[in-house]
Computed example of a mutant assay.
Amino acid sequence: MSTAPGTVLLSGIVGSTAYGLAHAGSDVDRLGVFAAPTEDIHGLHRPAESHVTTAPDRTLHEAAKWCRLALAGNPTAAELVWLPDELYEVRTPLGEELIAIRGSFLGARAVRSAYLGYATQQLRKLRTRDTSDPVTRARAAKHARHLVRLLDQAVHLHESGRNLVRLPDAGRVRDLGERIVEDPARAERLLAAAAERLDRPGVLPDRPDERPADAWLRRVRAAHWTHRPPDTQA
């Protein structure tokens, strides 16, 4: 595994493996949160906030960036704190604290906007695929599966307050994905039905509570501050 850009606080296997949709040829995707050295953040040039590698497939977000993504309802970032226990590969005490406050990142507006937005993107991508070609048809089916998965997760979040990362019926999602490839209008009906349910009263607050994230991030900064005397000229 490649060198981390800072201290990894929380990391795990995400994507199709986490959803239960992986097959023999699926990639194994990893996502994590890291803390940059606090003193580096105060310099003229801030450290990169995300690091992406392809061997292995891994994305690491700096703690502050991950918090911003999660507070905005980003489905990909948010799933990190809702993984089944066996999929975590790094769980530091600060990572455990982040899992403990995961509910505070949820807000009804952000969930509706982000999840419906990502699902709509999958539909647009699906429509660009030539389904007469086996390779591009397989990609279209993948877009369709993720569309169904995103809508299921959005409704479950809205109605229960919990993120359903591991799908309870992966076979249904696969079958429905194949039917959507044959008839993309099914996806439009699914989107409309999900939007209607998301417009009903749910259990989530209108907006997330930023205070726990802010307090956690301050603890991260304090824990990763190493005082170094300033350079002096001879």
Rank of each mutant, 00 (worst) to 15 (best):
Y118N: 11
R186M: 06
L123K: 09
R162F: 07
H146P: 11
Q121K: 15
L157N: 04
A140R: 01
R179N: 11
D183E: 05
A144G: 08
G103D: 09
L151S: 07
Q122I: 11
E188I: 04
R112K: 15
L123M: 07
G177Y: 03
R109E: 10
H158E: 01
V135D: 12
A170M: 05
P184G: 02
A100F: 05
R127P: 01
R112A: 12
D175R: 15
A140M: 03
G177L: 06
Q121N: 15
R124V: 14
K142D: 09
R172A: 12
V173K: 05
R139H: 14
T120M: 13
G107C: 00
R102D: 07
H158V: 03
D175S: 14
E182P: 08
I180C: 11
E188Y: 05
A140I: 00
R109N: 09
Q121R: 15
D133P: 08
T128N: 12
L176D: 04
E178L: 14
S160P: 01
G107H: 02
T136P: 01
R172F: 13
L167I: 07
R189G: 04
E182D: 14
K125Q: 14
Y118L: 12
D152T: 12
G117E: 03
D175A: 15
L123F: 04
R149L: 09
D152G: 05
K142G: 03
H143G: 02
G103R: 11
R145S: 10
Q153G: 04
R166P: 12
A170F: 01
A110C: 08
T128P: 11
D175T: 13
L164M: 13
A119Q: 11
E178W: 05
T131I: 14
A119W: 09
R172V: 09
D169I: 06
I180R: 08
H156P: 10
R124M: 13
R129E: 15
H143K: 12
V173C: 01
R102H: 11
G171Y: 02
T120V: 10
T120R: 14
V111M: 02
D130T: 09
